[in-house]
Amino acid sequence: MIGTTVFVDHNGNLQSYDFPECFITDTLRFVDKEYQTSMMQEISRNELVQEKTSSYISKKSVTTQNSSYTDVRRIPGLVYKIQLIGSSNNHAIRIHPVEDVVVKLAYKNPKSKTFDIVSIPMHYCSRCDKYFDMKQSFLQTLQKYNLDINYFAASFESETGQPIVFKQMDLRELSKLKLFGYSVGANVLSTGARHELLDFILKNHLMTASEIKSQLQFNIRFIGKKAHMDDAVGDWEKDIDYVNNYISSGKIHWRY
């Protein structure tokens, strides 16, 4: 038994069961019936305490702290990459060392130009160096607290390492680049500041190089048609070159 999971070896095939449900429903039985009976009595005595504890945890499971940060890079203690597991192929089944943790994520407040700090209970596998949650659990949490996943300054991957896309963003209304503070123009970000931001985004896997180039291409083709946008188009073209040079330099060490 590890935590709330019972592992049973069936002729070399490792099966997992939820505790205590597997004993209560007689899905599993102990050879020593007296031992199982005593365990069930202990579970029954603790049910009320467990319900009260679960209720308390549920109410306190997510906290949102308003902040004055406008630059996500300046917020300390954030996690930028989350693994969402949708199958039984997970760290617990593979008996990896897993601990329960509270993860701090940056959330762009749609009503302001600042980031809120959202704390969500998840898990951490020290062997894989992954912060993770079950996909259904995470999506239910977001729905419960009315949080839009597209406003998190984070990337999400499956148990196989593939990026998870929940819905296509309307690039005219909100882009990930804009969410992270990217902008062009004489009175906004300089070329050096933009490239520093792109460096941060790529380093933390917040966007892939292809996603960034796709957004910049969209800007050039559609926004760049407007009057007096020549300087902006020039900046976007420079940034495409910067991303290409970044790829050529070998700084990107992951593959989706």
Results as ranks from 00 to 15, higher is better:
138 F>C: 05
196 E>D: 15
189 L>K: 02
247 I>A: 08
179 L>Q: 10
30 F>R: 08
33 K>Y: 06
246 Y>I: 03
122 M>N: 03
162 Q>N: 14
173 E>P: 03
203 K>F: 03
236 W>R: 14
133 D>V: 01
240 I>M: 09
223 I>P: 06
59 K>N: 12
240 I>W: 04
214 S>Y: 07
30 F>V: 01
141 T>N: 10
241 D>C: 06
188 V>T: 01
200 F>R: 01
86 G>I: 02
244 N>K: 05
208 T>V: 00
54 S>K: 15
38 S>Y: 10
92 A>C: 05
118 V>G: 05
71 D>S: 05
194 R>N: 07
190 S>D: 02
24 I>W: 02
199 D>H: 08
208 T>N: 00
248 S>P: 01
182 Y>L: 11
143 Q>H: 10
28 L>T: 08
72 V>F: 06
159 E>T: 09
154 A>G: 07
60 K>I: 04
188 V>G: 00
255 R>L: 15
60 K>C: 12
145 Y>R: 03
186 A>S: 07
206 L>R: 00
151 Y>N: 14
252 I>L: 14
8 V>E: 14
183 S>V: 09
160 T>Y: 14
135 K>W: 01
149 I>C: 12
36 Q>W: 06
138 F>L: 03
129 D>P: 02
66 N>W: 10
167 K>M: 01
91 H>E: 12
254 W>Y: 14
24 I>L: 14
79 V>M: 00
1 M>G: 13
84 L>P: 04
120 I>K: 03
119 S>T: 07
184 V>F: 10
188 V>C: 00
49 V>P: 04
120 I>L: 02
164 I>E: 06
94 R>F: 13
180 F>Q: 07
212 I>G: 00
170 D>L: 12
93 I>E: 06
163 P>G: 07
110 P>W: 05
159 E>M: 08
256 Y>V: 13
170 D>N: 15
90 N>H: 05
163 P>N: 08
237 E>M: 09
208 T>G: 02
107 Y>D: 04
230 D>A: 15
205 H>I: 00
84 L>A: 07
180 F>A: 07
31 V>Y: 06
11 N>C: 10
225 K>N: 11
242 Y>S: 00
126 S>A: 09
71 D>K: 01
227 A>W: 13
181 G>T: 12
94 R>H: 13
158 S>E: 04
67 S>F: 02
109 N>T: 09
123 H>L: 07
193 A>R: 08
244 N>Q: 02
51 E>T: 14
200 F>S: 00
114 T>D: 08
240 I>V: 11
44 S>K: 14
21 E>M: 09
101 V>D: 02
102 V>E: 06
77 G>D: 04
96 H>T: 07
147 L>P: 06
13 N>Q: 12
71 D>V: 03
56 Y>N: 13
214 S>L: 10
239 D>F: 07
130 K>T: 13
61 S>H: 09
73 R>H: 05
44 S>A: 14
115 F>Y: 12
68 S>E: 10
180 F>C: 06
85 I>N: 08
157 E>R: 11
142 L>C: 11
17 Y>G: 11
68 S>D: 11
188 V>Y: 07
198 L>R: 02
239 D>T: 05
174 L>N: 08
23 F>Q: 01
113 K>E: 11
98 V>Q: 03
234 G>N: 15
100 D>C: 02
65 Q>Y: 06
99 E>R: 04
195 H>S: 02
133 D>T: 08
74 R>P: 05
